[in-house]
């Protein structure tokens, strides 16, 4: 464990907390893409499919359970309790292409042709693009509540911090996973525009509005 990775994981936890706090405090899921949330549920279930069968550490065990449970809870809240506050007319990204593309990428780029490795690779590729419906929705709306953009920012920081973590592990641990690294860089690039607008507007105390 190094500080980049710990920071990334903590940013991930913070993002989940912000999202659930926003939905329950406002009693509204307005501005949040349920499609992105469904994709994250798929990502965590496939990534952590061995959570009960392979022990790494108490830290990873607890975090995995938190990520799986909170993503399902978020989808459940959006689909049931706050269904009427959703924006299906602007949450129109075709996620079948993201899922299909991730299946193809996992079939080509994987560490081993076993079920667990294929679903692991699938989860990595799917995670790299899972934010797209949310960013697409933001673009269609043109502006968003600050709490929503803080959520997206914290989530983006999570994978961005994994990049120096991989550099660190490559230098000091002789560890390198090309699939996680390439997908992680793609994921961070997808956020780059968003990060730029976030910095230009929100950090300077303005409303998040797309130029």
């Amino acid at each position: 464990m190094n500080l980049f990775r710990l920071g990334g994981d903590l940013a991930h936890l913070v993002s989940i907390f912000i999202l659930l706090q926003k939905i329950t405090a406002n009693k509204s899921a307005a501005g949040i893409s349920i499609k992105t949330q469904i994709l994250y549920s798929i990502v965590y279930v496939t990534r952590y499919i061995d959570v009960f069968t392979k022990w790494i550490s108490l830290y990873t065990f607890v975090m995995k359970l938190i990520f799986i449970a909170s993503s399902f809870y978020t989808v459940w809240l959006m689909h049931n309790t706050y269904k009427s506050t959703q924006n299906p007319q602007i949450d129109t990204f075709k996620i079948r292409y993201l899922i299909g593309g991730s299946i193809i990428m996992a079939a080509i780029f994987n560490h081993k042709l076993t079920f667990n490795e294929l679903v692991w690779s699938f989860s990595i590729w799917l995670e790299s693009v899972a934010i797209l419906p949310q960013l697409f929705m933001l673009q269609r709306t043109g502006e968003a509540e600050n709490i929503t953009v803080h959520y997206i920012f914290a989530l983006g920081i999570y994978r961005a911090l994994y990049i120096p973590n991989w550099v660190y592990r490559w230098i000091f641990d002789q560890y390198f996973d090309y699939i996680a690294t390439v997908a992680g860089i793609i994921q961070t690039l997808i956020y780059s525009d968003f990060f730029y607008v976030y910095y230009q507007r929100v950090m300077k105390g303005k409303k998040f509005e797309l130029p």
Partner: peptide
Amino acid sequence: DEVEIIHDEL
């Protein structure tokens, strides 16, 4: 004897 792949990251 293949090396088992361990994914220790989240």
